[in-house]
Amino acid sequence: MSRTSASIRRRGTTYPVNTWYVIATKDEVSRQPLARRALETPVVIYRTQDGQAVALEDRDAHRPYPLSLGRVDGDTIVSGYSGFAYAPDGACVHVPTQPHVPIGARVRAFPVVEQDGLVWAWLGVAPLASRRNPPRTPWLAEDGWTTLGDEWDTQANLLLLHENFADITHVPVVDPFIAPPVLAGEPPALEVEVSETAVSFSRDYPPARLTGWHADALGLPSDTEHAQREEGAFVTPGLWADAWHVYVDGGSPHTFRFTHAVTPVSARQTRHVWRVSRNFAPGPEVSERLLPIFTAYYRRVQQILETMQQVIDSDGPRDEVSVNSDAAAQQVRRIVNRLITEERMA
């Protein structure tokens, strides 16, 4: 009897810590405190007077009361119970009842980088943050792209989400309406490229019809055939990015870019911020037609991944049969497993 491989055994129970994760989107962060939970840690996020995003541990150092239930005052956040005020570096800078601040009173401050419409936080060993940069997602901020999306929590481990993104051959089974017709048959060759910390893949499809909603969004007749290219990348544990290109009349491709910012809330719960960006048909009426289509699909994926986590939790991990199209998911699992092992070994 074979034993279950190590990376399968660890899946569903843990996640990498020393990496950048999206803690909020740009629009969510304001002068009002925002409460989030990530990596089993309560976090409060707000903006200083000059607009800098700040992320602190969401717990007053004086009593177990969330700072997010208090208020932002100048560049500080003031506890709604003790009245202790904390600066953006986490240091307590004012207490109401005595002239001097208790020495060493502070809350954890998390390194934050805001770029391309996303607010990234580093909840691992703080000084290591300066030795890595969060990945770029320029299509979320650049002119020429129109973006729609949503965000929610999925009651499943981070790796289950990545494995799902890594292989879209399940789409015709899960949601025949959204699936590109080229996925109906046996897919063309999958090219997977691996480096130490990232995996990317691509597939080139010969000219084929588009699905109805896709042709409609592009303003193309539904019966014309177009070459298509699928690309996907495990960029970091906190970011999956993929793209679907449609080649029309030899010009530059009409492209959908899909951004999945995934952040472990706990080992069994993952925040999923998803965005669908397009470089064609910028009108709001197209967005209105597309949003319910993608929402329905990602909600269906959410249900399925939650069911998978329940199966793991109730019946334990078990070896799984893999097929050719799992090659990218296998590489992702290998990298995540290694990151987790290195962080937790000591």
Binding site: A189, L190, E191, A198, Q331
Partner: peptide, 8 residues
């Protein structure tokens, strides 16, 4: 189906 896995 062919699958090609290669290093960067």
């Amino acid at each position: 189906t062919r699958t090609i896995v290669r290093e960067h």
